[in-house]
Design a protein around this nucleic acid. Sequence first.
DNA 1: ATTCAAAATATTGTATACAAAAATAGACCC
DNA 2: GGGTCTATTTTTGTATACAATATTTTGAAT
Lengths: 219, 219
Amino acid sequence: MLTTKFEDLAEQVYRTLRGMILAGELVPGQKLKQEAISERLGVSRTPLLTAFSKLEKEMLVELVPRRGAFVKRLTPAEVLELYEVRLRLEPLGAFEAARHIDAMGLKSLDAVLEAHRLAVESGSVLDVRIADYCFHMDIIRIAGNTVLERILSSFAIVSKSNQQGLMKSAAKSLAEHIALRKAIAGHDATQAERLMFEHLSESRNVAARLAAESTVARS
Amino acid sequence: MLTTKFEDLAEQVYRTLRGMILAGELVPGQKLKQEAISERLGVSRTPLLTAFSKLEKEMLVELVPRRGAFVKRLTPAEVLELYEVRLRLEPLGAFEAARHIDAMGLKSLDAVLEAHRLAVESGSVLDVRIADYCFHMDIIRIAGNTVLERILSSFAIVSKSNQQGLMKSAAKSLAEHIALRKAIAGHDATQAERLMFEHLSESRNVAARLAAESTVARS
DNA sequence: ATTCAAAATATTGTATACAAAAATAGACCC
DNA sequence: GGGTCTATTTTTGTATACAATATTTTGAAT
């Protein structure tokens, strides 16, 4: 029996703010004034504090004592760091997903892939980004490692690292996702792990180049 | 100039509770009653809520809506999951540490190793665990990847995964740490990465055995 | 005009108050 | 004795109140 999951106001506020940040509605660097937000969302400041501290742990918000909360701005160097971490964790996820995939998981993957295909066709950048995010998180979910899932979703690593524009062409990315789906569906864990590593390696290299450029530009 | 870092009550409470959980003063499964804790720590319940939500993100506390906060109890399966994640992330840390190590970092590593040696000599299990934790976190800190550092420290992955007793003999672990220190000091990133992988692999295998045993026992 | 200082204002961090939900205890029945 | 229903007490979640700290504005002096 599934108990209807009760949700705190704090949890709702957390989700709302998270969504607004990831959607770009709240832009990096912007100050999050407690009173303004609580008024806008129709809640008091108390649940906001809880939401802020959650978001701070996810690197989506920066909390400066006595100064306030700000939408975290990721430097190119930090984006590279995110990719370095993804590059180690997501292949593990793909490996485990290939071992644990079942009919339901496959159905979910296929639905995401179809949405991805449509998004590429229609040329909607935002939809492509969403589909990409869903595909990666779906694999992690299917992998069934709760710690891994928490880290990757909690740190918003997947979406944030794509923040500065997609790192490769949408068509290529889709093709690689399809190859991944095939390896996972065929329970080929080793292949899935390798494909995911390669899939992310290229993006990582682009991130590395961007980070290097920005370092040079600063000097 | 270094501004004296102001700390919220919430942050202090967070640190205190974190310490108490990791030290075993608050045992897994135990309920954390807001009033009792706030009274004991001499603060109101407000900063407690913030602290709880931080700890929840670190998997140190479980937050059940309308029921309260509980010290998280890790299953053997979850300990294995933690090791799987460590096995991917810490070699990256060792690799980067070898590239970025400087005189100060080396000094810090050596101090930890000396403490480790003394702890092994005196046979203090707790001190060995602390030294082990410090060594691993020191390497991550030296690596200079803030995302990696946040993940590993935030999730208390290192200490929690050692919770169920050390996974290998203290003497062997110390020897491996010394080998790691040598590779890092010599800027041999590839070697450092491999040594860290092997160092954690064995522990992971023990965790896997424990997880398998507990699964069998349950059936 | 620009800079600095001080007052006024706004914002944060914490405590307290209160309503809603859960846990506990007790009465009643079988 | 065990079980269930209700009344009481705890405990949680949220709002509000208030004190401490930042920020902004104002005004005067250079």
